[in-house]
Write a protein that binds this DNA or RNA. Structure first.
Lengths: 213, 213, 213, 213
DNA sequence: CATGAATGAGCTTTCATTCAT
DNA sequence: CATGAATGAAAGCTCATTCAT
């Protein structure tokens, strides 16, 4: 019907065949980007597929619905960040806080985290099982690790001391970073406090709270 | 079919006719509920209209597009919460913190706040002007008020003191509540820490940070 | 975007507004034609809507799914044909048979019947309730009426006679017409026996079966 | 990845390789089942292939389109049933009718017949050549054979008799069975008359029509 | 102002067909 | 020959928006 003279070497619909596992990861990468940018409803399967480098129909060979893509995406993303071990068992308060903030802000600065968090906020009610699982497998262990770390520190400094506030409520130690993270979800970068200011304030607060007084 | 002599003016299917201003508020109320529940894209004009007690077509007599409803909604919702004046100029630290937390959690517990915040997170990029305005007219003044309050308190306690951390970075004083608020946006109530625990921890942290050491 | 000079009196998408009851009948008329022509699956909602004189979306204001259109269509079509009363109570066999065949072939020649029958054969398993209802409300009463008619005739001719075969099994009296009807569902008109031949053979068979011997 | 020394020739996922003729028959068997169950349009090539024990792509090695499968299926199915010869040349009317009904109902009870008939009714217009061929190669010879049989019988009983109705119009002799067959295409088994009743009524009608009077 | 039928673009999903492996 | 990922053209259905009533 459309006769071609000197046909191009390859038609545009290049039929690239990849191992399914690779494709699936590409699709989830693309989905994370598109879902985070537009939200679940406004995200178009077309866009996800395009971004993943295949056609809309091709995506359905890997996932059987938009919803399945969404859940697979969260399942992959909601893995616990590891806190690691501090370089030395008995750091001073400042060194400990600096190390902790390094770890914390390193986690929080992964752009993927913002994307996932935005999705969780927007679509939490769509995936109740997912958020419950997130609390148990991600939040709890992380808070527990922070709490243990701070408890050990306090015990090292002052044996027999009453348990410190931050050791009892480790989530308090994260709040300034979480607060900043939420603002990042809403405000464009140029309207945010500069990261160093955030961190410096956070640092001072932790030191204050860990100080013996 | 139902012949009536001296029939009332109301034809079947005709709904109540209200003053435009009232109708608009009802529509925005309905819109807040529906948008918060489903997100901007998944919200249907039909649902908003129904919830506001009129028909889809009727809604378009008040707003000319879905987007206009959304913007009007945010414009109405994004008004600064007033901090009020503390009952006395020179409260003790505990009384001041208790009063501040009363004010703060009273603001944060309005269910409308959660709805708006969820929308801001999900749709921030759709309404950049709105979020910029929000920062200037809502966030900044509120933080400034908190900062001033804490600065006055510190000055009252210890004249000539170096400016306190919380007075310099009043957002730090809000972080635990903001943190808790974010968790409310994601987790169902039964997976959250109980409010009293949140508040108690928050209180202890503020007292620690305000203490002279 | 597409500026128009001397705009036509009416854009092509004429927005004709009809009473819902009228529209629904038009849609079912169109649906019967399209479904019969293509079968349930191959029929396109677009085609039905177009044929009914509205847009695809408009059809969905009247029926909420393709399936609902299909069921409404059958529900409307599957009404019992009335046999009527013979002109005189004691006709001779020939007059009775002629009258019966008039009635029968008048019913069977309605083109709608062919369309519905084709749909029933093709999609019977999709609508089990419908076919059960069809048997009870259409087939049974019709057969009962034929049986009664023939029983009265036999009794009139020969009181105290044993019940005639056709009176006991009235469906036998219809079989030649049903047979011909089935062939009409499969073969194009030019490959069918001519209608007069069908009817003449049918007539002879009935007379033979009603004769005393 | 799974290095194997002297690995067996069969890679994972490889199905059995059969002679083409066998495969084709399996495919047509599967196609008959699936097409009859769902109709042409709703039948999926995937389902046919799966049922035939190969993959979609594999099916296309044997047939080049869905339509070709359909036509091959009909071509294979639409072969004339042979009437056979009655056990004796001059049976009595009852024996002849019983033998004829044995033959007839044996043909009609093959479930394949129902499947093909349903397809013919539903998709007749898709394959006009096929149905024309069916009339010539299946229907006509069968009717001719029945007609000849009945003509011989009448001649045997009463030489010089006028040609009997059934001998002239042999299709009449089949009508009750065809009628019953059509009902089988529409109604579930539990709503049908029992087969013995059908056959008994059919038998009585034929005997009546063959009787001398 | 209000109603709700109607439009039409756009969305998710399906599936016959192709083709690299 | 066989597999199954990939394509691309629909198809069913939705919904913001319009407009006759």
């Amino acid at each position: 019907m459309d006769a071609q003279i000197a046909a191009p070497a390859r038609r545009e619909g290049t039929r690239l065949r990849l191992p399914p596992a690779v494709r699936s990861q590409q699709i989830l990468d693309a989905a994370l980007a598109v879902f985070a940018e537009r939200g679940y409803s406004a995200a178009r399967i077309d866009d996800i597929a395009l971004r993943a480098g295949l056609s809309k129909g091709g995506l359905y060979a890997h996932f059987s619905s938009k919803d399945e893509v969404f859940e697979a995406l969260l399942a992959r993303a909601l893995v616990a960040p590891q806190l690691g071990e501090p370089p030395s068992a008995d750091l001073g308060a400042e060194a400990l806080v600096d190390w902790l903030l390094d770890e914390l802000y390193a986690s929080f600065h992964r752009p993927e985290l913002r994307a996932v968090l935005r999705l969780l906020v927007a679509e939490a009610e769509r995936v109740p099982g997912m958020v419950a699982r997130w609390r148990v497998t991600v939040i709890e262990p992380f808070l527990a690790a922070v709490g243990q770390l701070l408890a050990r520190h306090v015990a090292g400094q002052r044996p027999n001391a009453v348990p410190s506030l931050l050791a009892r409520e480790p989530w308090l130690a994260l709040s300034p970073a979480v607060h900043a993270l939420l603002m990042q979800l809403i405000l464009p970068d140029d309207l945010l406090y500069p990261p160093e200011r955030i961190r410096q304030a956070h640092r001072e607060l932790l030191l204050l709270a860990l100080a013996r007084c």
